[in-house]
Design a protein around this nucleic acid. Sequence first.
DNA 1: AAAAGACTCAACCGCGGAGAC
DNA 2: CGTCTCCGCGGTTGAGTCTTT
Length: 338
Amino acid sequence: MSTIIAKREVGSSNEEETDLRRGPWTLEEDSLLIHYIARHGEGRWNMLAKSAGLKRTGKSCRLRWLNYLKPDIKRGNLTPQEQLLILELHSKWGNRWSKIAQHLPGRTDNEIKNYWRTRVQKQARQLNIESGSKRFIDAVKCFWMPRLLQKMEQSSASNSPMIMKNFNNNHPEASSMSTSSISNCSNNIPNSPSPPQRELFMDVPNNQFSNMSSPNNNNNNNVPPSSDSLQFSSQIFEMPQHLAAAASSSPIVFDNNNVYYNNNNAMIQENWNNVVDANGNNNYGGAMMEGLSMDPLSLMGTTYYDIPQFDFQTCGSDWILDDNNNNMGDTLWNMDSM
DNA sequence: AAAAGACTCAACCGCGGAGAC
DNA sequence: CGTCTCCGCGGTTGAGTCTTT
């Protein structure tokens, strides 16, 4: 319900009293604003408000236009890609909402800010983690972002084998995401028991390894890669189609020698040396096992996982614990709630 | 079905920077 | 320089809606 306030304009010779409306905009006001901007363009908001016959402040007009009426504004929930980008950019720039919004076409700073406060900070509250703290940033990087990626992969795998391709095309800025923003995940994370099962998680930049994947590691971030760390240096990683199909429904699990995946509710273990692509070729053996760079040209095939400068390593699903030693991984970052 | 609590998001507020005078 | 106005940003509010009890 709109209210009307009386504003006394001090400085005016006759102390003109202007009635200014506040609160929700009416259709009529929207129409006035849209038509005025269509004719005269935006900007000079105070003058615009008067000229358009709107009893609103220039600020209010600007906000209404930029956050709601502007034609190119996108409606609907943020996609996982957009959420990932927000997390990434927020880790870089903090609460610079307008700057972040510039990288999400059609999304407003207000929308992003609301998303952050209502979704992201809510998760932090539930975990008794101070949002913005190092620990919270770690959790975002090590759990939320990987799971967004996983979700993106799953949805992409079911629609198209070109994992991440569309994401990169739609978000060229994402290709400049730095691995450093997804680094050093373990500093404030409690030590974890040895993971009984490993999922593929994006983590750790080149030459930096955390203790998240190995019970043998200490807190030194620069310890050498543990035997169960697996790192992809290449940006192009071909996934055989049967694995891509498996990945569309449940996580694929890697270790040094094998890939584990779900097939009709049976856990399949396949040695990398036996994994073949659609042409019957094995491109994965030694290179994959050693976590070495793979030649993209040799991987020309049918299915690609185009990973935007992210590195991966295996890690346990229970390595991150909250203050009560509950497994955050089980309870947090429920992507459906995002 | 109703009340209470939780959540969402459009809109407002205060502040600071930029530019004009 | 100092003052004023405009603009844009980030923080906050609160009405409406949804969910839970």
